[in-house]
């Protein structure tokens, strides 16, 4: 399976995302924001970072970059697309996911090992989890406050489009503690925490068992491989 990772000017975690893809056993394909070519990939990751310097709004210019024409068409045709942090902001700006992400309510950058509860385990990127499962994924952002109008919030809550919720601490003022969303079809998922930073013992978040031993993030990448098998 080939998983493309798009590099935008200002992407930071594209190499980490590629590494996570390979660690899960898939082939990572580097995609370039200025191209109109997905190079035959089966799934796409929009990585974290500060694309285009976060000018205008986080993710706003990246959402209108050349390759997004193909990414949006592929997403609407059912291809799995995962947006991590800045990638989540790009998905929202591209209208592939509802709502918006604004500056954290406390005004500060936050970096922590964040506990999450899995709310939807039937998406292309979460089918390896179980509903209600508690996982720990590193979070690092200044503009992760999820907001949406009341009517849409009721709809996405009612239709199971909340994929992840913050546990213990709401780190940024997100409505309903929302950490991540899926689209109605379940192929597009976006979240503020960084699963690609929790894939290998020794380099992940701390757990009660051992320092840096958390690997909950790898399940995102094994899930998408499983969903590709199921679709084949």
């Amino acid at each position: 399976m080939k998983v493309g990772v798009v590099t935008f000017p200002g992407s930071l975690d594209d190499r980490d995302a590629q590494r996570a893809v390979r660690h899960a056993g898939a082939d990572a394909v580097a995609l370039w924001h200025g191209d109109h070519d997905l190079h035959g990939v089966d799934a796409i990751v929009l990585p974290g970072g500060f694309s285009y310097g976060d000018y205008l709004r986080c993710g706003a210019i990246a959402a209108r970059s050349p390759i997004m024409t193909e990414v949006i068409a592929a997403a609407n045709a059912g291809m799995p697309v995962l947006g991590i942090c800045n990638g989540f902001q790009i998905l929202v700006e591209a209208h592939l996911l509802p709502g918006g992400l604004i500056r954290n309510d406390h005004g500060d950058f936050v970096c922590r090992d964040q506990k999450l509860r899995v709310e939807n385990a039937s998406t292309a990127w979460t089918n390896g989890f179980t509903v209600g499962q508690e996982i720990t994924i590193p979070l690092k952002n200044a503009e992760g406050g999820f907001i949406v109008d009341a009517e849409t919030l009721t709809r996405i809550e009612g239709e199971g489009q909340v994929a992840f919720r913050y546990l213990d601490v709401n780190p940024n003022g997100s409505l309903d503690d929302i950490a991540g969303l899926t689209n109605a079809a379940g192929n597009v998922v976006g979240l503020m925490p960084h699963p690609e930073h929790a894939i290998e013992p020794g380099f992940g978040p701390d757990t009660p068992d051992a320092m840096r031993s958390g690997t909950d993030g790898i399940t995102f990448f094994t899930s998408v491989m499983q969903s590709a098998l199921a679709r084949a």
Partner: peptide, 14 residues
């Protein structure tokens, strides 16, 4: 302008 009903953390900080 940010929507009136939404939090404006930058404005609040000032």
């Amino acid at each position: 302008m940010p929507k009136a009903e939404l939090l404006d953390p930058a404005g609040k900080a000032v």
